[in-house]
Design a protein around this nucleic acid. Structure first.
Lengths: 212, 212
DNA sequence: GTCTATAGAGGGATAGAC
DNA sequence: GTCTATCCCTCTATAGAC
């Protein structure tokens, strides 16, 4: 990758962070990149093309950065601790905010939506793999699949990140609530066969109800 | 409220829905409202002023619409069912998407952030009251407070709504995962004093660890 | 209260020199 | 690959007629 492409991608990410999706323009990005405005079109064709490349590139790099650590996680507790660390680091670097801005823009733009979908899938695949290991043998895995749980984790992350920008206290509370609820899973593990039996009863009742 | 103010507020909400925060302008709103562009400035001073009024107005109306039903909820199961119904209705009406767009714009705009914060607090207050009733006496209330749980619910809602625009399948999975996890709370209720005791043990251990 | 017209800024995108 | 210059469009906001 040439130096100018690099600078433009970094400039796009920085502009997304500082001015949001509503403040994105070839001129604002070029100013952040310290580069001529016309180069956006020479290298990426359109502003959307640059946004697309920036989102893909930044997500891939972030996922790469955390892959090893996610792969090393051995318990729910460790996963939550890593999640909190990741939340703080990404918030300081402004990267979850970037994904949130892209997601907001993607609601009305099919091309950007495809990019956002693939970016989220990169994260979700890593999270799902970690959940698979952490929840193996736990009664929780009878309740829900990690392929559903992982997107829920990603969605919560994004929601909390956006929340953080307008009400930091409430967002911190939300994060704590989620961590507290994870204790429920551990309690169920502690209860062993008793908990597992109670869970099965509930699940049977639930499925009988949904047949009505 | 005059007819023109009404039309402009509705036009702003519709524009937020169809074109997102990046597509907001006095002209696009006025076109959606079927009204002259200059009237935005006559009635609301600036485009931001109109956005602000639209967000407050629309949130207050929505919260009002669901207040009675939220107040009638008597169990976690009923609350989840109402949540799912609300999710579908608001998605079809495009209102959670509107709040998500405002939230994205609010990250870089202090005035809009204040509006978004207050709008979220309207929702959170209702959700917290419902959770208070539903979780009264449940061991879950020893784990976390509804003042933390309610923002978590709101954040998850917003995250899922944004997710829905780019990956509907994954978003549906996320919603199901959350509903499944709620069964954990019911299982713990079923277990009565056994579950409560196991929970207390876990909590003691957790707090001992966090003192290290 | 509503309209037209317009100033002045910012924006996407391109042509063509270097 | 990079720059300047420019076209033409859209934007906010206001002035002033009605």
């Amino acid at each position: 990758m040439t130096d100018t492409r690099r600078r433009l991608i970094d400039g796009a990410i920085e502009t997304l962070r500082t001015r949001g999706i509503a403040g994105i323009s070839a001129r604002s990005i070029a100013a952040a990149a310290g580069v001529n405005q016309a180069l956006v079109f020479y290298h990426f064709g359109t502003v959307d093309g640059l946004l697309d490349a920036a989102c893909r590139e930044s997500t891939a790099a972030r996922v790469e950065l955390y892959r090893d650590r996610l792969a090393a996680v051995g318990s729910l507790r460790e996963l939550l601790a890593l999640g909190r660390e990741l939340n703080i680091a990404e918030r300081e670097a402004g990267n979850v905010a970037v994904l949130a801005q892209v997601l907001a823009g993607a609601q009305q733009d099919a091309a950007l939506a495809a990019t956002a979908r693939e970016s989220l899938r990169l994260w979700v695949a890593e999270v799902a793999a970690a959940l698979d290991r952490v929840l193996a043998g736990s009664p929780v895995s009878e309740l829900t699949s990690t392929s559903q749980l992982a997107p829920a984790v990603a969605a919560a992350f994004i929601g909390i990140e956006l929340y953080e920008g307008v009400d930091a206290g409430a967002a911190a509370g939300a994060l704590e609530a989620i961590e507290s609820l994870a204790v429920l899973a551990e309690v169920l593990d502690d209860l062993g066969s008793v908990g597992r039996a109670a869970l099965r009863v509930r699940l049977r009742r639930l499925r009988a109800e949904s047949r009505d």
